[in-house]
């Protein structure tokens, strides 16, 4: 598996991680070696196998529709990096 610079930057963008040019080479090599290793999975024929999507044996874990008051606004904002007593704040979302 070869990861070119474009793909690397695309993945970094999807993951919202900075990818400075200086870090590119190391990340590219790391990814490629692990992905090559993961490709060993291709050795097995799985054409008739269904993917295992759920590991729990339970079904229908449902909740009654009841309101249970939880944390206050103050508590909710407590961990916020930037807030004004009412809202969480971030730099303006560009439309």
């Amino acid at each position: 598996m070869n990861i070119d610079q474009e793909l690397l930057q695309k993945i970094a963008h999807l993951a919202r991680l900075e990818m400075p040019e200086s870090a590119e080479k190391e990340m590219k090599e790391s990814l490629e070696s692990v992905l090559n290793w993961m490709s060993e999975l291709d050795e097995i024929d799985t054409s008739n196998v269904k993917p295992l999507t759920h590991m729990s044996l339970e079904i229908n874990a449902l909740r009654e529709d009841k309101v249970i008051p939880n944390i206050s606004r103050e508590q909710g904002l407590k961990n916020a990096p930037k807030q004004d007593g009412e809202y969480f704040r971030v730099p303006k979302v560009m439309e």
């Binding site: 992905l35 993961m38 999975l41 291709d42 097995i44 799985t46 196998v49 269904k50 993917p51 295992l52």
Partner: peptide, 18 residues
Amino acid sequence: SASYYDAYYTKAQKIRRL
């Protein structure tokens, strides 16, 4: 990611079952 999902993720889920 879309282009690789079946090749890696789905494949691994199948092998997990095996």
